[in-house]
Amino acid sequence: KTVEVNGVKYDFDNPEQAREMAERIAKSLGLQVRLEGDTFKIE
């Protein structure tokens, strides 16, 4: 899975870890996480 923030992509081998990281980043920035294919987009 991939986490994308402001056009910057971070790859994770563990999908659960990617989801947790995406949620943590989104919460700290006051944004939403949206799953698009294999990418968690933070917008």
Rank of each mutant, 00 (worst) to 15 (best):
L31V: 11
S28A: 14
L29D: 01
A26L: 04
T2H: 13
Q32Y: 11
S28M: 14
R19A: 07
Y10Q: 04
P15S: 10
T2G: 05
Y10N: 01
R24L: 11
G37W: 05
R34P: 02
R34V: 11
E23M: 14
Q32C: 15
V8F: 11
K27G: 07
V3R: 01
L31Q: 05
A18L: 04
D11S: 14
E20P: 00
R34S: 07
G30E: 03
L29S: 04
E23L: 13
L29V: 03
P15V: 11
G7D: 03
A18S: 02
K27P: 00
D13R: 09
V3F: 04
D13C: 15
F40T: 01
D13G: 08
L29H: 06
L31K: 04
K41V: 14
F40E: 00
Y10F: 11
K27C: 15
E4C: 15
E20V: 11
Q32I: 14
G7R: 04
I42M: 06
D11Y: 15
E4L: 13
F12V: 05
A26Y: 03
K9I: 10
R19L: 09
E36N: 05
S28W: 14
R19D: 00
E43V: 14
R34A: 05
E20S: 10
N6P: 01
V3L: 06
I42D: 00
N6H: 11
V8I: 12
Y10S: 03
A22F: 06
E4P: 02
V3C: 11
I42Q: 01
L29I: 03
D11R: 15
Y10E: 02
Y10R: 04
L29F: 07
G7Y: 03
E20C: 15
F12R: 02
K27D: 07
K27R: 13
A22I: 05
E20H: 09
Y10A: 03
V33W: 14
D38Y: 07
E4W: 14
V5I: 13
S28G: 07
G30V: 02
Q17N: 08
D38H: 09
P15A: 13
G7T: 03
E43K: 08
L31A: 12
Q17V: 10
L35Q: 09
N14D: 14
Q17H: 11
L29G: 02
S28P: 02
E16S: 10
V8S: 06
V33F: 13
T2C: 15
L35T: 06
D11Q: 15
E23A: 10
E36P: 01
Y10P: 01
L31R: 05
E36M: 06
E16C: 15
E43R: 08
E36R: 05
E43P: 04
T39D: 02
K9F: 09
D38S: 08
I25C: 15
V3H: 02
K41E: 02
N6F: 15
L35W: 08
M21V: 12
D11C: 15
Q32K: 14
L31M: 13
E16I: 11
L29N: 02
R19F: 08
Y10D: 00
M21P: 00
